[in-house]
C-alpha cells in the first residue's frame, strides 16, 4: 500500500508541455509567480487566467487533478483572506461591528490574496504534473549552474535529490516490511492513546533509520568504485538541449510577462 505513493505527482499525457525542457518550465513558473504579485487591478488576473487556462488545456492534465493540489491549503487561503478582510484600515467602511470592520480596500486586498494564492498553487503544480522529478532535478542543476562559481555545491545538491528520489520506493518497501515484522511481534498500530501510538511509530522509525544509514554507506562505496569523484569533468548521457519549441516557449513567456504586467499595473 505504501508503494503506491508517488512523489512529485507526475501525470504523464505526452503533451508538448511535458516535452519542454525543464529549464523553460522552471523559468516560466518563476516568472508567472512574479507577475501575479505585481498586478494592481483585476484585468491583470484576467490575462493570467487566460494564460494559465491555455497551458492547462494544452498539458492535458484534468482540471480536477490540479484543483486537488489546492485542497490542503484551503485553510491558509481562508485565514489570509480573513486577516486582510477585517484588519485593513481605510476610510471607505462598508460594515462595522465593534472593533471589526470591513473596508472596501480590505475587500479588494482579500480578493487579491485569494486569487494570488490560487494561481500560485495551480501554476506550480502544473510544472510538477508535467515534469518527472529527475528532469526537474536536472533542470535545477543546470539553471543554478552559475552559482558554482560562488562555491555553492549545486551538483552535489542535485545528486542528493536524485538519489533521494531513487531510494524513496526502496525505503517505502522497507517500512512496509518493518511494520509487518513489528506487528507479528505484537506491536499494535491501531489502538491506544496518542503517546502509545507515538512509541509504536518509534519502533518503525529506528530500524528504518539504521537501514537507511547502511544503505547510504553501501551506496557511497559503490559510487566510489564506479569512479565517482565529484561533478568536475563529468559528462551526461542525456544532456539538456534546447530545441525549437523551447525557444518559442521562452518568447511566449516573454510576451505574457510584458503584456500582463503592462495591463495589470498601468491600465
Amino acid at each position: 500500500m505504501l508503494r503506491d505513493i508517488t512523489i512529485g505527482q507526475y501525470y504523464p499525457t505526452g503533451s508538448i508541455i511535458h516535452k519542454l525542457d525543464p529549464r523553460v518550465k522552471l523559468a516560466g513558473t518563476f516568472l508567472f509567480i512574479i507577475s501575479i504579485f505585481t498586478f494592481e487591478n483585476f484585468l491583470g488576473y484576467v490575462v493570467s487566467l487566460i494564460y494559465l487556462g491555455t497551458v492547462i488545456f494544452i498539458s492535458g492534465v484534468p482540471l480536477k487533478y490540479i484543483l486537488k493540489g489546492v485542497k490542503p491549503i484551503i485553510f491558509l487561503i481562508v485565514f489570509t483572506a480573513a486577516i486582510h478582510l477585517f484588519f485593513t484600515s481605510g476610510d471607505d467602511v462598508l460594515w462595522k461591528f465593534y472593533a471589526l470592520k470591513i473596508t472596501f480596500t480590505g475587500l479588494k486586498k482579500a480578493a487579491f490574496m485569494v486569487i494570488r494564492l490560487l494561481f500560485l498553487i495551480t501554476g506550480s503544480s502544473i510544472m510538477t504534473y508535467t515534469t518527472t522529478p529527475n528532469r526537474l532535478t536536472e533542470g535545477i542543476e543546470k539553471s543554478f549552474g552559475p552559482l558554482k562559481k560562488l562555491h555553492i555545491p549545486v551538483h552535489e545538491f542535485a545528486l542528493m535529490m536524485s538519489l533521494a528520489l531513487r531510494f524513496i520506493p526502496i525505503l517505502m518497501e522497507e517500512a512496509d516490511k518493518i511494520i509487518k515484522a513489528q506487528s507479528s511481534r505484537g506491536a499494535d498500530f491501531e489502538e491506544g492513546n496518542i503517546f502509545k501510538k507515538i512509541s509504536v511509530v518509534v519502533s518503525i522509525l529506528i530500524p528504518l533509520l539504521v537501514s537507511a544509514m547502511e544503505r547510504a554507506r553501501d551506496l557511497a562505496l559503490a559510487m566510489d568504485a564506479r569512479c565517482y569523484h565529484g561533478g568536475e569533468g563529468r559528462t551526461k548521457m542525456k544532456p539538456l538541449r534546447y530545441t525549437e519549441k523551447d525557444y518559442i516557449s521562452y518568447c511566449i513567456i516573454f510576451v505574457y510577462m510584458v503584456s500582463s504586467v503592462a495591463i495589470g499595473r498601468f491600465i
Binding site: L219, Y228, T235, M237
Partner: peptide
C-alpha cells in the same frame, strides 16, 4: 543489488561510471 544502483532508469545507471570518467555523450 539495491544499494549499488544509482539512477532511477536502467540505462542511466549503466551510464553512471561513463559519466564520471567523462566519456562524450
Amino acid at each position: 543489488p539495491d544499494n549499488q544502483i544509482v539512477a532511477s532508469v536502467v540505462e542511466e545507471d549503466v551510464a553512471f561510471a561513463l559519466e564520471n570518467i567523462g566519456v562524450p555523450t
